[in-house]
Design a protein around this nucleic acid. Structure first.
Lengths: 146, 146
DNA sequence: CAGTTGTCTAGTGAGTTGCTCAAGATTTAG
DNA sequence: CTAAATCTTGAGCAACTCACTAGACAACTG
């Protein structure tokens, strides 16, 4: 029940790209250094985000990456799904990647306890992450003291 | 962001054990056949649940496993933590297995965006699973039609 | 004691994760 | 035009995890 490093790095990279949104481009090594991410691995992540339409890139000596969608329009759920796949804890409750369980004896029956419980979990996770925008993410201030 | 087969099998096995709670013991092959689980793998799961104090077992020709805690007292959260480890999506927000992130540049700072967001997710998951009892789980009837 | 069951430890093949490397394409500076 | 800096692509790889298997052993029953 963990998120991968890929998602974590991806979100941290987007934090940097949010800061220069609308302004200059950022090069992979800039992001990598500031966020302490292995540069070649980061690149794969940036390319995936580019293919998904969140980032633009330019090659050559003045090249780099930049955000092309507003941080208001991007949610953490989108980013995690791009980098980590579906949010659902088991695939028989995924809305974006549903798959019938092969071996579950309840698959044929009208009600599956696992599906019920995991469905609730899926909805709770999606409900948070699909409403959590990058701009809110980037402006986080912890409310609690100590 | 997936649960393992171990948790899934464990929960399905507990479904069977709930039915005979207070009555007779169940042998591994009975559970395995009914729930379509490889019997040797199931055994490891049952042993883990036994070590955690949920199950009792008896060896010998009349042996088998039985639930020793009431299905009302056992939550899905407990079971999943036994079989799959902590619920938290990243370890810096785990309450049962906290670990400081080594490479995160926000680890030292007062606020970490990732920690904030993932903390919400953790709480939502825990909130559902730690209040979902086995007895409710075993008596699931899907409410929705179609 | 013999047979049936659970207990324990170790191993294993396939797949995933996290990361590295090398060769190529594109852009800009000079 | 050339060279340097950047992104692009794809392959490779060590370590780990997952799902499962095997086998020796302990305990219980009749």
């Amino acid at each position: 029940m963990k998120f991968s490093k890929k998602s974590e790095y991806g979100l941290r990279a987007l934090l940097e790209l949010c800061e220069t949104y609308g302004g200059r481009v950022l090069q992979r090594h800039e992001i990598a250094e500031r966020q302490n991410i292995p540069v070649e691995f980061l690149e794969q992540i940036l390319l995936a985000l580019k293919r998904a339409g969140l980032l633009a890139s330019r090659r050559g000596i003045r090249g780099g990456y930049s955000l092309i969608k507003s941080p208001e329009e991007i949610t953490l759920g989108q980013v995690i799904r791009i980098l980590d796949g579906p949010l659902a804890p088991i695939s028989c409750v995924s809305k974006t990647a549903y798959q019938k369980c092969a071996d579950c004896p309840y698959a044929a029956k009208p009600s599956c306890p696992l599906q019920q419980a995991m469905g609730e979990v899926r909805d709770a996770i999606a409900n948070i992450l699909d409403h959590y925008t990058l701009s809110r993410f980037a402006h986080t201030q912890l409310a609690e003291g100590s």
